[in-house]
């Protein structure tokens, strides 16, 4: 039963990504040109509601449907891994014009070349796992 729920959440997320045009290469390109408010509006609105949702969950100690407290684990403290990793991710995000969520959505939309991006992203993840100990974190 819960499995269907996860698929449904993903299903609506996929529709949102496609219909908001956040999954379109053109919107990402335009965002990095600062020539439209569209993507900033999407991220800004998501963030504004997201902050309210998280604060309400914390304030009222709302529990998940399993009855467990909702805990959001803080990320480990570091500067270099977030900055260097972030820059590398940003280079790829702009070059392929898609981030991981939209990559999956575009697979469903039937854009065959995105499969190359997906396979390469899996490869990139694998390379990180192999090189992790040698990288500054």
């Amino acid at each position: 039963m819960k499995s269907i729920l996860y698929i449904l959440v993903g299903f609506f997320f996929g529709i949102i990504m496609y219909k908001s045009e956040a999954a379109s290469w053109f919107r990402i390109y335009e965002m990095f040109q600062f020539q439209s408010f569209h993507m900033y509006g999407i991220i800004g609105t998501a963030l504004a509601f997201g902050i309210v949702f998280v604060q309400v969950i914390k304030h009222y100690k709302i529990k998940s449907i399993d009855g467990n407290p909702i805990v959001i684990l803080p990320k480990e403290k570091s500067f270099s891994r977030y900055m260097i990793g972030g820059i590398i991710f940003g280079l790829g995000w702009a070059l392929a014009g898609a981030c991981p969520g939209p990559i999956f959505v575009l697979v469903g939309a039937g854009f065959v070349p995105i499969l190359i991006v997906l396979a390469s992203a899996v490869l990139g993840t694998f390379l990180y796992g192999v090189l992790k100990e040698k990288l500054p974190h």
């Binding site: 280079l91 790829g92 392929a96 991006v117 490869l123 993840t125 390379l127």
Partner: peptide, 28 residues
């Protein structure tokens, strides 16, 4: 497409998240 994908996968794990994990979940 290959270079873009590799950078996305490598960078996302290095940074510990992507647009959804950091820009939405983390900033929220």
């Amino acid at each position: 497409l290959i270079v873009g994908g590799v950078l996305i996968g490598f960078g996302a794990r290095y940074a510990g998240g992507c647009t959804s994990g950091h820009a939405i979940s983390g900033l929220s």
